[in-house]
């Protein structure tokens, strides 16, 4: 996993403050109060329903990379599904019961022995949230957004991923309505694995394209 909490080394325009532990007795911050006030006003004036935000929080909480992993494992084991997924990412995910709660389109990019895909959103933080949940902070921060498009091999190397020179690296830049998901290559030595076991190998970072899916290891926890 790649989480480093309160690890603030960003010197670019994406200043992220380290945050203190959550305590309800703390006075809410200025922006916290602003968010509450804004939401209440919008509800009072009838622009949004009172229960909509609470419900959407539940939807957000229900999304995580396990959904994307399920899609990838199905694509590895079902060639017809894989074809439909590459044809239209959104409708294929919907077949598996993954609803798209927004109007975004999903293009699934297949890694092959000759092509490696990487996704980014240079302008902001667009991300295939219905299938992966919310993006990690590094995806939203300046270094990744700035560099992924012009030195992807160096960026990948910082994630420990070395792409051979004869493999093409393709970088896809997301937009507000067009999102991408990488379909990683199925690792060797997984012929006997069930779809569920395969899904357990697939990580968030592999579906962003910064690492490959690693073959199963025995006993190792990482």
């Amino acid at each position: 996993m790649t989480a480093h909490e309160d690890h603030d080394h960003d010197h670019g325009t994406e200043h992220e403050h380290p945050h203190s532990p959550i305590e309800t007795t703390d006075k809410p911050g200025y922006y916290d109060i602003m968010e509450q006030a804004f939401q209440e006003l919008m509800i009072e004036k009838g622009y949004i329903g009172a229960d909509k935000i609470r419900h959407q929080i539940e939807v957000l909480d229900s999304r995580n990379p396990a959904l994307g992993a399920k899609v990838v494992a199905r694509a590895w084991t079902d060639p017809d599904f894989r074809a439909r997924l590459l044809q239209n990412g959104r409708t294929a995910c919907e077949e598996l019961g993954i609803t798209f709660y927004d109007l975004t389109e999903l293009i699934v990019l297949e890694n092959t022995p000759s092509v490696h895909n990487l996704i980014v959103c240079t302008l902001c933080s667009c991300y295939p949230r219905p299938v992966l949940g919310l993006p990690p902070d590094w995806y939203k921060a300046k270094p990744y957004r700035a560099r992924a498009v012009y030195e992807p091999r160096k960026v990948l190397a910082e994630f420990g991923t070395i792409i051979p020179d004869d493999v093409e690296v393709r970088v896809s830049d997301s937009t507000a309505i067009q999102r991408y998901l990488v379909l990683p290559m199925r690792p060797d030595g997984t012929d006997q694995m069930s779809e569920e076991e395969l899904a357990s190998l697939v990580t968030r970072d592999a579906m962003i394209g910064v690492i490959p899916v690693k073959p199963p290891t025995r006993g190792a926890s990482s």
Binding site: T2, P28, P136, W138
Partner: peptide, 26 residues
């Protein structure tokens, strides 16, 4: 900022604060 020079990627992440999650849902 796509294409600008920038420092090494720090693989940071954090759990959203309650108000941040509300803001996202909003």
């Amino acid at each position: 900022i796509g294409g600008l020079e920038a420092p090494k990627i720090e693989q940071t992440d954090h759990d959203l604060l309650p108000w941040e999650k509300r803001c996202h849902a909003l």
